[in-house]
């Protein structure tokens, strides 16, 4: 710092016209290449956006158009009213997805952070075995345990009807998603807690703070970014969960956004106009995409930190 303060007094060496760091020919060649990559990256997004504002209401698009003539938001209106043939509104679908996603996010973080704290800071008997067990589960895809989860949740009755089992409810699906999200939350949070220096906690312990006080007053505030990111990833896994809901749920009032979206695609779509499908896809993606965009820096960093360990 001291050296820098003397710098201005030194004679400044300046070029009159700074030469561009990159020759113009190279610059234009690179720009062309990058524009091509940009086109490829944006093509699906532009296609779906322009489809969603197509007012013609025809079943299938016959040509590529960036801005269809007479662009309107009528497809969004139809989707918000009733996206599929099932008697359920967009708001109800979104509420189901939100409950599922929020439940998974809340419970995986609330339960996971305690375990992550122990794995990061304590050395109790059997800890290695437990951590290894969690790592093993982490490796398994959620669909890898769909058969036992389906069978077991089907044995738990929560109502009077023959189909009123935990399997056939959002709670059952939530439990099943949490079973995959919780190990990830523990591991991701542990990875972050490992990067927090221990000095603060040790100072607090010397000042007479108990373990609980250290956890609440020091660890939790410092880990807030990681809690937010892990919570968001849990939310994302609930919001976009498809395979388990599609297999488990049969009551229309329990259906989620992802199930409705799949109902509007491919062989199930029937005569649903693709402009409605496009509007639906954008409505499902938009809320989580915006949050992801904001948190993206922390998420990518966290994911690779976790996989190094």
């Amino acid at each position: 710092m001291a050296a820098e303060t003397y710098l201005p007094t030194m004679p400044a060496v300046r070029k009159k016209k700074p030469k561009p760091e990159l020759s113009y020919r190279k610059q234009w060649a690179l720009q062309l290449l990058l524009l091509f990559i940009t086109f490829i990256s944006l093509f699906p997004i532009l296609w779906i956006v322009s489809l969603s504002i197509d007012p013609s209401g025809i079943a299938r698009p016959t040509e590529l158009r960036l801005i269809p003539p007479g662009a309107s938001l009528s497809a969004y209106q139809k989707v918000l009213d009733q996206p599929t043939n099932n008697p359920i509104t967009f708001a109800e679908l979104a509420f189901n997805s939100f409950r599922l996603a929020f439940g998974v996010a809340f419970f995986s973080v609330a339960i996971g952070v305690g375990a992550a704290y122990v794995f990061s800071r304590f050395n109790i008997t059997g800890q290695q075995v437990l951590m290894l067990a969690i790592l093993t589960v982490l490796m398994l895809p959620a669909i890898g345990s769909i058969a036992p989860l389906y069978v077991l949740l089907n044995k738990i009755k929560i109502g009077v009807g023959p189909a009123d089992t935990l399997r056939n409810s959002l709670y059952g699906v939530g439990l099943a998603i949490t079973s995959g999200a919780l190990p990830f939350a523990i591991w991701n949070l542990k990875g972050y807690l490992d990067t927090i220096p221990r000095d603060l906690e040790e100072a607090a312990r010397i000042d007479g703070a108990t373990i609980n006080q250290t956890f609440v007053r020091i660890i939790l505030p410092l880990a807030t970014p990681a809690l937010a990111v892990t919570g968001f990833l849990g939310f994302l896994s609930g919001w976009t969960e498809f395979a388990l809901s599609w297999q488990f749920l049969s009551k229309v009032e329990d259906f989620t956004l992802s199930m409705a979206l799949w109902n509007m695609t491919g062989q199930y779509s029937g005569q649903v106009p693709w402009s409605n499908f496009a509007a639906m896809a954008l409505l499902v993606a938009l809320p989580v995409s915006v949050v992801y965009l904001v948190l993206q820096k922390y998420i990518v960093g966290g994911l690779t930190i976790g996989s190094v360990k």
Partner: peptide, 28 residues
């Protein structure tokens, strides 16, 4: 006492994962 508190922190995750993660895997 430290070990006991550690286990207390671990307990919720231990119980929940026992029921919805590990039991289904053994059942599988």
């Amino acid at each position: 006492s430290t070990t006991r508190i550690a286990w207390l922190y671990l307990l919720p995750a231990f119980l929940v994962m026992g029921f919805i993660t590990f039991y289904p895997l053994f059942y599988q």
